[in-house]
Amino acid sequence: MTDASLVPGQQHTRGALPFNQVDVFSTDRLYGNPVAVVHDSASLTDHQMAAFARWTNLSETTFLLPPTDPAADYRVRIFTPTEELPFAGHPTLGSAHAWLEAGGSPQNEDSVVQECAAGLVRVRRSEVLAFEAPPLRRHEPADADSIARIAAALRLPPAEIQSAYWVVNGPKWVAALLKDADTVLGVEPDFAAMDGLEIGIVGRYPAGSDCDVEVRGFVGGSQGFEDPVTGSLNAGIAQWLIPGGQLPSSYVASQGTVLGCRGRVHVRFDEGRTWVGGATNTVVRGSVELD
């Protein structure tokens, strides 16, 4: 098994680590969601990782390390600008892409096994990389008080929310099903009113459209933001709505439209497993000095 974090043939000085920035969930470069990936990160401290993630100011920055579980091909730590996450979707696909592109050799030809704080996550290698959604850590209907808070944060009457469900798998998403994709696209959220909530919304497109649903993901607070394209949220939505028949077993989600992105998330429920995939493209290659 190749060292999971070294970039073959790339020269770098002491203290400089190989680095990629990968665009995830769009076939068109610069229209997906970027993730920063630092290779060969075993020498870095928690403080250095957190500081670099804060400095990149991307939704997530990842650090590749040798695995501690013999079943894994590599280990990853995932940081937002403010915290470390046990799992996140687009960083999983971006990290797997960067690891493979750097010459990583998985134990199984058809998939890569990532070790993260949430456990082992399998990434299938097919037309696009697709991760197997980990089990939800919290999965239950949102209560009336939570729905009222969600409605206020979305500036919608509570009756506009058809149903809402906690779909926590790393990020603490609560997802709301709205009437249709146009309603999703028209939402103008009040980030301050979210008061720490991470809210995902989803609505169906008419039959025959290019995509099946429109998804948006909001992280609340004084520095609140809308995430361009979100693997963890799409995984949670699929695990919530496919079993109940509200979404088909295979579909394509559009996300990032309001932000000028063209995210496309490919979702498939297959033999009891939910797979979430999309295109991955390296945009930046180089090195970083964190000492």
Results as ranks from 00 to 15, higher is better:
Thr2Pro: 01
Ala4Ile: 05
Val7Asn: 01
Gln11His: 13
Thr13Phe: 12
Gly15Thr: 05
Ala16Thr: 11
Leu17Ala: 08
Pro18Cys: 07
Val24Ala: 09
Thr27Pro: 07
Asp28Val: 14
Gly32Pro: 10
Asn33Ala: 03
Asn33Gly: 02
Ala36Val: 04
Val37Gly: 03
Val37Glu: 01
Ala42Val: 12
Ala42Tyr: 10
Ala42Gln: 15
Ala42Lys: 10
Ser43Asp: 13
Ala50Thr: 07
Phe52Gln: 10
Trp55Ile: 00
Asn57His: 14
Thr61Leu: 03
Thr62Phe: 02
Arg77Thr: 07
Thr80His: 06
Thr82Ser: 07
Glu83Ala: 15
Trp99Met: 06
Gly103Asp: 06
Gly103Ser: 03
Gly103Ile: 09
Glu109Asn: 13
Val112Cys: 07
Val113Thr: 15
Glu115Phe: 04
Arg122Val: 15
Arg122Ile: 12
Phe131Glu: 08
Pro135His: 05
Leu136Cys: 01
Leu136Gly: 00
His139Phe: 14
Glu140Asn: 06
Pro141Val: 12
Ser146Met: 15
Ser146Ile: 15
Arg149Glu: 08
Ala153Leu: 07
Gln162Asn: 10
Tyr165Ile: 10
Asn169Ala: 15
Pro171Trp: 05
Val174Gly: 03
Ala175Leu: 03
Ala176Val: 03
Leu177Lys: 10
Leu178Glu: 02
Gly186Gln: 15
Val187Pro: 08
Glu188Ala: 14
Asp190Trp: 01
Met194Asp: 02
Glu198Val: 07
Ile201Phe: 02
Arg204Ser: 13
Arg204Asp: 14
Ala207Val: 13
Val213Ile: 13
Gly220Tyr: 00
Gly221Phe: 00
Val229Met: 02
Leu233Tyr: 04
Gln239Trp: 09
Gly244Asn: 09
Gly244Pro: 01
Gln246Ser: 12
Pro248Phe: 08
Ser249Leu: 02
Thr257Ala: 11
Val258Asn: 11
Val258Pro: 00
Arg262Glu: 01
Arg264Pro: 02
Arg268Tyr: 03
Gly272Thr: 06
Gly277Thr: 03
Gly278His: 01
Ala279Ser: 15
Thr280Ala: 13
Asn281Val: 11
Thr282Glu: 03
Ser287Gly: 07
Leu290Ser: 10
